[in-house]
Amino acid sequence: MTSFDSTKVAEIHRQLHAHLPSDSALRVKALESLLVEKGMVTAETLDAWVEAYSEKIGPKRGAHVVAKAWCDADFKARLLDDAASAIRELGYLGNATAHLKAVENTATVHNLVVCTLCSCYPFSLLGVAPNWYKTAAYRSRAVRDPRGVLAEFGVSLADDVAVHVWDSTAELRYLVVPQRPAGTEALSEAELAKLVTRNAMIGTDRDLAAQPGEGA
């Protein structure tokens, strides 16, 4: 039975701090072998989850959604109205995306997503979050100094372009829909998807290249 007792858990943390090996890899290796020995999970199942999030589930899904929105006005309208339903059409609804909000960049608005309290991220759509998204540096600064953060990522904004920062404090998750680059009228949806960077869907990238592989 779970206690929901903060004082009890704080004491457990102090004992773990005193007795667990300091090395993170050793900690996790010992935890895995213990859980496997107790029959709570198998190593093969853990292998499958690692492979699922390494090979199958990642930012290519989000890029597909964005490219489809660029090409299909009806889909874009559905995405902006109810993003969870829209991504369900593509089979991407899942862990941490049941309440999803798509926020669209325009010539006068730039959107940036953060979770200042933990590390909330739309896993089934964008995969595992980048490490920088989970650092104290990003979490502390994205709300207070978003333009400084953007400058470090190479994004410079005119003063009159408004930054909208979305702090994921509830179970809503956010997808930034970047602007379609000029000069891409001839590209297919699949080609357009290759232009959409992971960072653009978080908001730390803005001006996408018009050809895959060109640095923005």
Binding site: S24, A25, R27, V28, K29, L31, E32, L35, V41, T45, L46, D47, A48, W49, V50, Y53, S54, G58, G127, V128, P130, N131, W132, T135, A137, Y138, R141, V149, E152, F153, G154, R198, T204
Partner: peptide, 23 residues
Amino acid sequence: GPIDVNEPEVPFHADWEGRMWAI
């Protein structure tokens, strides 16, 4: 301080990270 904007774009940066995610 600054953000590591040059972090390699991979889901896990060490095997143990992937194992912990899966656990």
